[in-house]
């Protein structure tokens, strides 16, 4: 039975320790960037559950981030509601939208679903511009910067960093509990072989819609934590490029493990910045080349590649924990298929 083992606990403890210490040791602008890493990580986690575990490709999760971001922004801007109310409401609104889109998605598969969700992402900016009485139109809405609550000896930025990563932690935990056991197996069974899954009683409508809904909840929360540090939302904040960025992050990080979300979040945040350092004239080229290289040499993402390396190093197959769903993380082949 997949219980969290010592190795997993070690990795989680290291991750938590690093996240807790970072704001005290890195420059303040990096702390700021790391808030965006948290947002990307949360959104990519949703995609990993939806696409990696359930096999539904979404090129439209930027639209759910937009919904989340705008719920937070509109409530704060128009009604003066605090962010700690706005973000949960963003999660709910985005989750409901995700369930509805998920119902539509039931009728679509593979590339058709990708196209349909992509059109959702493309339409989002126009939609936001159109309902300008609510959204502020093209000009968008400015938000108040975050202040730490009285008595907390942190700057606003550090406070937001810890809140964002605490939320990311909670979201990881809830997702891990959700996809452990029966629920997660049903998602992955539908991905691997829908006919067989259905024949064993897995209701495709329930699980596929639920996966869509939950991934939208995560995207909605991520949208909130994308809007709050920027302290501004506009249609240009949530272009279709954002949706593609999320999918790139999921694939680069590793679409079949939760760790892929963390790595993917770091990569999509910093790769464009690093690309500019390498070649200021053509950052797009550097970015693209980096993408192609990862896809060529690490087809199962950075985390998949790392797992393979550690496997080689230890000469023992990785134990199935959170990675139990990894298609190629455990390169165990017991010889060719014999059909004698």
């Amino acid at each position: 039975m997949p219980r969290p083992n010592a190795g997993l606990l070690t990795r989680v403890a290291i991750a938590v320790a690093v996240i807790a210490i970072l704001p005290w040791v890195v420059p303040s602008f990096l702390v700021f960037d790391l808030i965006y890493v948290a947002a990307y990580t949360i959104a990519i986690l949703g995609l990993i559950i939806l696409t990696g575990m359930n096999g539904q490709i979404s090129l439209g999760h930027g639209a759910f981030m937009a919904l989340g971001g705008y719920v937070v922004a509109v409530l704060a801007h128009s009604a003066g509601w605090p962010y700690w109310i706005g973000v949960p409401l963003a999660a709910i609104a985005s989750g409901v939208a995700g369930l509805l889109i998920g119902l539509v998605a039931l009728r679509l598969a593979g590339v058709y679903l990708a196209l349909a969700t992509f059109s959702l992402a493309v339409a989002t900016p126009s939609f936001l511009k159109h309902y300008k009485s609510i959204t502020g139109g093209f000009d968008g809405m400015s938000l108040q910067p975050v202040q730490a609550p009285a008595g907390v000896p942190l700057g606003g930025q550090q406070w937001l960093y810890y809140v964002a990563w605490a939320v990311a932690g909670v979201v990881f935990l809830l997702s891990a509990l959700l996809v452990r056991g029966q629920f997660g197996r049903a998602l992955r069974a539908l991905r691997d072989n829908p006919i067989a899954a259905v024949s064993f009683g897995v209701n495709p409508y329930f699980y596929k819609t639920a996966a869509f809904g939950w991934s939208a909840v995560l995207a909605g929360i991520a949208g909130g934590f994308y809007a709050i540090p920027t302290a501004y939302v506009s249609p240009d904040t949530f272009t279709f490029a954002l949706s593609i960025t999320l999918l790139i992050g999921a694939v680069l990080g590793g679409i079949s493990t939760f760790w892929g979300a963390l790595v993917g979040g770091i990569v999509v945040e910093f790769l464009p910045l690093v690309a500019q350092q390498i070649n200021a004239a053509a950052p797009g080229v550097v970015y693209g080349v980096a993408l192609i290289l990862v896809m060529m040499f690490l087809p199962d993402g950075i985390v998949g590649g790392l797992l393979r390396l550690t496997y080689r190093f230890r000469r023992a197959p990785p134990q199935p924990a959170l990675e139990s769903s990894t298609p190629s993380a455990a390169p165990v082949t017991v010889g060719p298929q014999s059909r004698e």
Partner: peptide
Amino acid sequence: PQQIAGKRIARTFQNVALFDHMSVLENALV
């Protein structure tokens, strides 16, 4: 179709329809 297993009817497939990226144990648990 998804109600059939609940009636305690189970099947195998001519072309072996496993959940390839899941472990043997997980396949059984489905």
